[in-house]
């Protein structure tokens, strides 16, 4: 340790930095997380479970799950397709495509919701036609699914593209030249290689899909028991000064967030371990890599 001494700060500076960093995280992350649960249980367990068993809260939970279940498979399919095309082939406009995938991150969720109102709303492009055929998209499930699909577009693709680019196409090319069909190659070579990255993207996309507020709020119409997702239900209860109800619903979402963080951390460890195993071969040439892992 002594030879590294020059590389670190004097102990008062170190202490100051630690206090600043941990104090900041405590006030802005730790306390809010703690306070969700404290507020939810403020009047004890009874009122908490009563609030959770409320019919509207239960239907909000169901709707949130339904939307996530509908959005995620499509999002996975898009992420896989985009990453396959971008990481395995060369074509013109590739970097433009990568930028376009990121576009939904740059659009305010409220604007995202507005986009779908302009198409499917009563005064929208398709409004008359939908009205004539009695199809409801805005203020109904399809609109909320579309808005959630919009905001979650980048998550899985963004995880897979750099991962697959780093892995290169040698293994898949070997599989194909040895006679594997496209599907065999995908299930036996591609998927095992990217499974942790894919899972990581799914975890993040799922958290966003279940927690989205702005975009869904614009297209939902806030009909209780019908088009109310759990985050929207939190808002309604809060605005009705039903603090225990609002925080009980919020605690479910906070629990989801904690599960997300734990799952994400586990997946990160697994990915780091796999990278470590890969770089173990290189350790003779480059001891720094091995030491790090």
């Amino acid at each position: 340790m002594t030879p590294r001494r020059v590389n670190t700060e004097s102990w008062p500076v170190r202490l100051l930095l630690c206090v600043l960093a941990l104090g900041f995280l405590f006030f802005f992350l730790g306390l809010p997380l703690l306070s969700v649960f404290v507020e939810a249980f403020k009047q004890g367990f009874g009122p908490y479970f009563e609030a959770l068993c409320d019919a509207d809260t239960r239907s909000a939970i169901t709707l949130t799950l339904v939307i996530a279940v509908m959005v995620l498979p499509l999002n996975i399919l898009f992420g896989l397709s985009a990453a396959w095309a971008i990481a395995r082939f060369d074509f013109r406009g590739k970097s433009l495509l990568i930028t376009l995938i990121d576009l939904p991150f740059a659009v305010s969720p409220v604007v995202a919701g507005l986009l779908f109102i302009l198409i499917f709303g009563r005064q929208g492009f398709l409004g008359d036609w939908l009205g004539a055929h009695d199809i409801k998209i805005i203020f109904a499930l399809p609109g909320m699914v579309l808005a959630t699909m919009f905001v979650t577009v980048p998550y899985i693709a963004r995880e897979l593209i750099p991962l697959m680019q780093a892995q290169g196409r040698d293994e898949e090319e070997a599989a194909v030249s040895l006679g594997a069909s496209g599907l065999q190659m995908f299930w036996r070579v591609t998927l095992p290689n990217i499974k942790w990255g894919l899972l990581y993207g799914v975890i993040l996309a799922n958290a966003r899909a279940m927690g989205e507020f702005g975009a869904v709020s614009v297209v939902s119409g806030h009909i209780r028991g019908m088009t109310n997702t759990l985050p929207l239900h939190v808002e309604i209860l809060y605005n009705e000064y039903n603090s225990v109800g609002a925080f009980a619903a919020a605690s479910v979402l906070a629990l989801l967030a904690l599960v997300t963080l734990v799952a994400k951390t586990i997946v990160e460890w697994r990915m780091a371990r796999e990278i470590a195993m890969l770089s173990a071969d290189l350790s003779i040439e480059n001891p720094a890599v091995a030491a790090k892992s």
Partner: peptide, 13 residues
């Protein structure tokens, strides 16, 4: 791990 909480916690919460 806690640093990522804002990505995971719904904004309404």
């Amino acid at each position: 791990a806690l640093v990522d909480l804002p990505f995971a916690l719904p904004t309404a919460v």
